[in-house]
Amino acid sequence: MPYGKYKGTIIADIPVSYLEWMAGKGFSKDKMGMLLSTTFEIKTNGLGEILYMVKKQVQAARPRKGGAL
Rank of each mutant, 00 (worst) to 15 (best):
K65D: 10
V58A: 11
Y6G: 04
G8E: 12
W21D: 12
L51G: 03
T9Y: 07
M34F: 12
P63I: 07
Y52G: 12
M1A: 11
A12L: 04
L36A: 05
P15V: 01
Y3H: 08
D30Q: 05
T9G: 01
W21S: 12
Y18A: 01
K7I: 04
Y3P: 00
T9Q: 01
G26T: 03
E41Y: 10
K29V: 10
F27G: 02
S28A: 14
M22P: 00
D13N: 14
I10C: 10
G8R: 11
A12H: 12
G26M: 09
L47S: 13
P2C: 02
E49K: 15
A12E: 02
L35D: 02
A60Q: 01
T39E: 00
G46S: 13
M53H: 13
T44W: 03
N45K: 15
Q59V: 10
F40M: 01
L51K: 02
I11A: 05
R62K: 13
R64L: 12
A60G: 06
S17E: 14
K7C: 05
I14M: 03
M1S: 10
K43C: 10
V16Q: 07
G33R: 10
P63Y: 00
L47V: 08
I11Y: 00
M53N: 13
T44G: 05
K25Q: 14
A68Y: 15
I10Q: 13
V58G: 02
L36W: 01
F40L: 07
F27C: 07
G8Q: 09
L35H: 05
M53A: 11
A23M: 07
M22G: 05
M1V: 06
S28F: 06
V58T: 12
E20D: 15
T39A: 06
K25N: 08
P2H: 05
Y52N: 13
F27T: 06
I14K: 00
A23T: 02
S37M: 09
E20P: 08
G33K: 08
K29P: 02
I10D: 14
L36S: 05
S17Y: 07
R64Q: 12
A12N: 09
Y3S: 09
M32T: 08
K56D: 12
G46K: 09
T9E: 04
G26C: 09
F27Y: 15
I10P: 04
L51Y: 10
L36G: 01
E20W: 07
L35V: 05
P2E: 07
K65N: 11
D13L: 07
